[in-house]
Amino acid sequence: MTFVESIKTCLLQKYISVQGRASRSEYWWFALFSYVVNFVCSFLPLISIVVSLALIIPSITVAVRRCHDLGKTGWLILAPAAGIILGALIMCTAIYTQSESMLSAGSIILILGALGGVALSIYFIFPGTQGANKYGEGPYVFTEQKATVQG
């Protein structure tokens, strides 16, 4: 899948769809697109907020479909997010109550959540399952020489 095909798929065809599977190229091209667009828009605060909010849903849905391609449930993406959110909430509470031990615990949980996000990103580098799995047909066409992504 090309860069443009990935953007069309994620923004126009499967904006809110968590059904099916996403190839590595679909996921990583869309991630690159999201990072670049968010960086460029970061210089215009109001536009940056609107663009970031518009890209949240397709970013989540393509990550869920990428999990499906690897044969895993899409709920897997919640683990790092839960750690980061829980850690941040504990840290905010710790600042309010001036509890150093609670601040340390919140920091550790937040860091573990962030490391989980890094681990999940590394996991997304691996190839998906060949052929059909419980989430649908694979996005790849296998030949003797190579695998290509279906249109």
Rank of each mutant, 00 (worst) to 15 (best):
Y140Q: 14
T2P: 08
G87W: 11
T97I: 13
S17F: 05
T73N: 13
L110W: 07
A88Y: 01
G151H: 14
Y123E: 10
E137V: 11
G138Y: 05
G151P: 01
C92L: 14
L70G: 13
L112F: 13
T129D: 10
Q98E: 13
Y140D: 14
S107T: 14
F142W: 14
S104D: 06
T129K: 15
W28P: 11
L78V: 08
L115Q: 08
F126L: 11
P58D: 01
L32P: 00
R65K: 04
I84T: 04
T2E: 09
A119Q: 02
Q13R: 14
T9Y: 15
I84W: 01
F126M: 11
W28M: 03
L46Y: 14
Q13D: 15
S34E: 09
I125S: 05
A94D: 09
F3I: 05
L46W: 14
V62C: 04
A63S: 15
V118A: 13
L86K: 05
N133M: 11
R24C: 05
W75E: 02
I60W: 10
G116P: 09
P127N: 11
Q130Y: 00
Q130C: 00
Q150T: 05
T61R: 03
G136N: 02
I108E: 13
Y96Q: 12
G136V: 10
T148R: 12
I60L: 15
Y140H: 01
